[in-house]
Simulated assay, not measured.
Amino acid sequence: MKKAQVNIWLFFMLLGSAFAVVSCDTNDLDENNQRLTETDFVVKAANSDLFEIQTGRLASIKSNLTEVRELGQYLVMEHTNSSTQLKNLAELKKITIPDSLSEDKRVHRIRLASQTGAAFDKDFVNTQIIAHDEAISLYEQASRELQDPDLKNFAAKTLDALHTHREQVVMIKSKTDAL
């Protein structure tokens, strides 16, 4: 008789545990654990701007195509402006931003710096498409998830410019693909 009571008790404990697990919304936990923080956004956005500035400068002096040189100069100007805005916000929020590229971005910049001619132009344009896709994804996430209204507004405002940059790069890609 005692064995039957223990089995029933164990059955209800397992049933209760299963119910608790099923009723727990794991999507909410994942989203909360992976929510983009203000600090993460500022650091990643600053890294993105720095990459665009450094590679844009490379394009403005290394490219054989006028369109790529002009694009490089344009990206330097645009990302210097957004970088300045971001730095001002970071100071207000007491967030330290990096003054050098992350390792993955540094590797891409070094690779670009080692190239010349058509190889540089093609790689630069392809790299810019990828970099802007990453930036757009980051800024979209920030405009959805950030709690700080100033940073959230900055992200939302900057998205239009990032989309415009990407569109310009894609237009130039047709020229570099023909090289």
Score class of each variant (00 low, 15 high):
F41I: 11
N27Y: 11
I97Y: 02
F124H: 04
N64D: 13
S48C: 10
L138E: 04
A59Y: 01
N47I: 08
S102L: 14
R111M: 11
D123A: 03
I97N: 02
K105V: 04
V170P: 04
R106T: 08
A4L: 14
D104P: 11
V170D: 14
L151I: 04
I129N: 01
Q54E: 00
D177A: 12
N33A: 12
K105Q: 15
L146M: 05
S83L: 14
K157I: 02
I95V: 13
G16S: 15
T116W: 05
S114N: 15
V6H: 09
L58E: 07
I95K: 04
A135S: 10
D104K: 12
M77T: 12
R69F: 06
H132C: 02
A156V: 08
L151F: 08
L151C: 03
R109W: 03
V169A: 04
H163V: 12
D40T: 12
T37W: 02
L86S: 06
E38Y: 07
R57F: 07
V125H: 00
T176V: 15
E91L: 15
K122H: 09
V6C: 08
L162D: 00
N33W: 12
L146N: 00
T80S: 15
A18N: 09
T116N: 10
N32S: 11
K152N: 10
F51S: 01
T84K: 07
I53S: 01
S23Q: 10
H165W: 07
F19I: 13
T80C: 12
V169R: 02
A46F: 00
E140D: 01
R144N: 12
H165S: 08
S114Q: 10
S102T: 11
S48Y: 03
K93V: 11
Q5T: 15
Q115W: 08
Q168G: 13
L58K: 11
T37K: 00
A178V: 01
F11P: 07
V43L: 05
G72Y: 00
G16V: 14
L36W: 04
R166Y: 04
S48I: 03
S63A: 10
Q34P: 12
A46R: 06
A155Y: 01
M171E: 15
L15K: 13
T84Y: 08
T158R: 14
T84C: 08
P98C: 09
A161Q: 10
A135W: 02
K3L: 12
A135L: 04
H132N: 01
V76A: 05
F154D: 00
I110T: 05
F124S: 03
D30W: 14
T158S: 09
I8W: 07
L159C: 05
N27D: 15
D25L: 02
E140T: 02
A90S: 10
S60I: 04
Q34F: 15
S174T: 13
Q54I: 00
L151Q: 02
V22K: 01
L112M: 03
L65G: 03
K105S: 11
T84D: 01
K105T: 08
Q147H: 12
N153K: 14
